[in-house]
Design a protein around this nucleic acid. Structure first.
Length: 281
DNA sequence: TTGTGTTTTATTGCCTCC
DNA sequence: GGAGGCAATAAAACACAA
């Protein structure tokens, strides 16, 4: 990208917090003035904060290349980032003074830190979505199996009914064929009805929405939500607890990176209930 | 030691907001 | 128009296996 690079000059910083001044604009204006005749001399990174102001060192090692911040500096920046991930000018100046850095460096650090946070957030969002998808898929597969089972039950009972009808036609039964058929039919209805009730009770749902083994879950528009709320909440609760962790929120905006998109999609589908579970607090 | 992959620091250009 | 944010990118610093 760029042909000439600019390097932080700690000696200049030491002398006067640098000619760049406080603002990024000043930096941007002034940066073209800086030359980059680099030396190949390098120094690892500061081993302590005091090294920053080790004049003797800079006298012999100028100019400097890019170097890492000390663990202490990083720690303080992290703490500051945790409380607020955006940087007002005053705080930037204060932090810079406190850490012996240029305000520009502090600003850049925050910018990069926000980018890292965002990347992590996307990873977390992906994990959440994937777990959610897996749970739904498994639920769907269970329902499909159950559906198959019930269908075969219906087929076998229907066959029995037909057999009985046949028997009756041949006069081997005391009951009339129509009566028997109707009786058996009622039995089938009873079984199906009971199954339905049990299904509702056991799943806690408002009834299975999956009525056919198509390519995926199909919504039967009964006026209910597509996903039974308690079932879904339970699922997401588990997912949520499992995935979020590792990295601090570090911001007042610590919600799912996808939440806006999902809510937007939700609106688009005229869904009445907010998909609150996409958002962690 | 060296090659390679990852992380961190910094720059550039574009965009938005006031 | 200036200030500041972000995405994309460069390049130094670092880690680590071979």
């Amino acid at each position: 990208m760029e042909s000439g690079r600019l390097f932080f000059d700690p000696s200049a910083c030491h002398a006067n917090m640098l000619f760049l001044g406080n603002g990024d604009a000043a930096f941007r204006g002034a940066r073209s003035m800086m030359s980059i005749e680099e030396t190949s001399k390098r120094r690892p990174f500061f081993s302590s904060h005091d090294d920053l102001f080790d004049e003797a060192y800079y006298d012999e090692q100028l100019p400097e290349k890019k170097r890492r911040l000390t663990p202490d500096q990083v720690h303080m920046l992290e703490k500051s980032f945790e409380t607020e991930n955006k940087l007002e000018p005053e705080r930037k100046t204060q932090l810079a003074k406190k850490l012996g850095l240029q305000p520009r460096q502090v600003a850049v650090w925050f910018q990069n830190r926000r980018a890292r946070w965002k990347t992590k957030q996307l990873e977390r969002d992906y994990d959440v979505l994937k777990s959610s998808y897996d749970a739904l898929l498994s639920n769907y597969e269970t329902l499909v199996k159950e559906n198959e089972k019930l269908k075969s039950e219906v087929v076998s009972l229907t066959e029995k009914v037909e057999d009985k009808k046949e028997e009756n036609k041949e006069g081997k039964s005391g009951k009339k064929g129509d009566e028997l058929g109707s009786e058996m039919g009622n039995n089938v209805s009873d079984i199906l009805f009971r199954n339905k009730i049990e299904d509702r009770l056991s799943s806690g749902s408002g009834g299975s929405a999956v009525v056919d083994d198509q390519d995926g879950p199909q919504l039967v528009d009964s006026g209910d939500s597509y996903f039974p709320s308690d079932e879904y909440t339970g699922c997401m609760g588990a997912v949520d607890g499992g995935v979020q962790s590792e990295e601090e929120d570090g911001s007042d905006d610590s919600r799912s990176y996808f939440s806006d998109v999902l809510v937007a999609a939700d609106d688009h589908h005229q869904h009445e209930e907010p998909m609150g579970w996409w958002v962690w607090s």
